[in-house]
Computed example of a mutant assay.
Amino acid sequence: MTENIITLNNGVQLPAIGLGVFQTPPEETTTAVADALDLGYRHIDTAAAYGNEREVGDGIRRSGLDRAEVFIETKIWISDYGYDATLHGFAKSAGKLGVDQLDLLILHQPLTSRFDLTIEAYRALEQLLADGKVRAIGVSNFMPEVLTRLLAETTVVPAVNQIELHPYFQQKQLQALHDEHNILTQAWSPIGGITSYAGGDKRSFDDPTLIDIGARHGKTPAQVMLRWHIQEGRSAIPKSTKRTRIAENFNVFDFQLSPDELAAVDALDTDVRSGPEPDSITLDNYGMAIPEA
């Protein structure tokens, strides 16, 4: 299924659609991961801050797949920024996941209030990459100015920037910067789930344009949104704990959106963020100890 494979800027291949486990309770995570892998997923995205890395590892082992068949992505939380702290953060995550090597390790937030720690953390990722402990490194929620500063102060161009991206919030300026530096745009909340619970007045699942496009193809609005990401060259990380919905989110490789349909989805952008402003993430209000493995 070559359409589901994206080659990163260092040659590592990443399955375009991955299962996300943000806010998935640990007791539900193992089954969700095992179900996803049974249904054909080969990419799982988690984070130290999610508190379910151990259960992700359990789900991968339950699947019976060889370790090499599953692309594992996780994130270092801001409490573990700093060179030595980030190296230890890797060890904690790898220990919980039960693996020796991670496929993709990224910084969860830019921590602009202590950008010195962010730079030290990224340099630790560079060392982990050089040592072969991770296959690719990247960032998450880095806005244009901050990403530009990171590029100026470090050596390895991030393979990925994982950002809020759905039809109502497309971050086109940031996507253009990614394209300029061959950084993959990876979408969290790719089907706009955050528009359902963030208190906004528009829900992507109810959008008449997406409903109409889906009806033409016998697909749901969620499937239309995921197809839009794929055709525009992005990676997407939909999340669910329901096997039927997990299957639905992966069943997006048997239809094609026309140029007009892609343009119609592009036109839905409101430029309104539903998640937190990245600059609002500080150690004072979001710092938390990440448990040992």
Rank of each mutant, 00 (worst) to 15 (best):
L151T: 10
G218K: 01
Y81W: 01
L102N: 05
S274V: 08
L174Q: 08
I17F: 12
R245H: 15
D80W: 12
D131W: 11
T185S: 15
A293S: 15
W188E: 06
K202Q: 15
T220H: 06
S196T: 14
A198H: 00
N182S: 14
G57L: 06
Q162E: 07
V156T: 13
Q13C: 11
L150D: 03
E28N: 10
K96I: 04
H217I: 04
D212I: 07
D58L: 15
L125F: 11
G64A: 02
G218M: 03
N182Y: 12
I183R: 02
D84H: 11
E126H: 10
Q109V: 07
A49N: 12
V272Y: 10
V157Y: 02
L105K: 11
A16E: 07
A34P: 00
T2R: 14
V70L: 00
Q162W: 00
T241V: 14
V139N: 00
P167C: 13
S258G: 13
G199D: 04
D116N: 10
L151P: 08
R234G: 02
L257E: 01
A85N: 09
W77P: 01
G95Q: 08
K219Y: 03
I194A: 08
D201S: 14
I237Y: 08
V160C: 07
L117P: 06
N4A: 15
P144N: 09
V224R: 04
L105A: 07
A85W: 00
G193W: 01
R227M: 01
G57T: 02
E3V: 10
D116R: 12
G199P: 02
A264N: 03
L37G: 06
N251F: 06
D45S: 01
D201L: 06
S140E: 03
N10I: 08
S280L: 11
L87S: 02
G138S: 00
R149Q: 14
K242M: 11
Q173C: 05
E120Q: 14
A68P: 00
L151G: 09
F71W: 10
H166K: 00
L151S: 07
N9T: 00
Q186N: 11
L174M: 09
E292R: 10
Q171N: 13
R61V: 05
Q231F: 07
S280N: 13
N4G: 11
R273I: 05
N249C: 03
Y168P: 03
T31G: 02
D279T: 14
N141W: 11
G98N: 11
S235C: 05
A49P: 04
K172A: 08
Q173L: 12
I213D: 02
A215Q: 02
Q186V: 13
E69D: 14
Q13A: 14
G214S: 04
G57W: 02
E277H: 15
A236C: 14
T2I: 11
V139M: 08
S196W: 15
Y50P: 00
A32I: 01
R62F: 03
A136L: 07
G64P: 03
G18I: 12
A47C: 01
N182G: 07
Y168I: 06
Q171M: 12
P278F: 05
G57P: 02
V272K: 15
L65R: 09
G57M: 05
I246R: 04
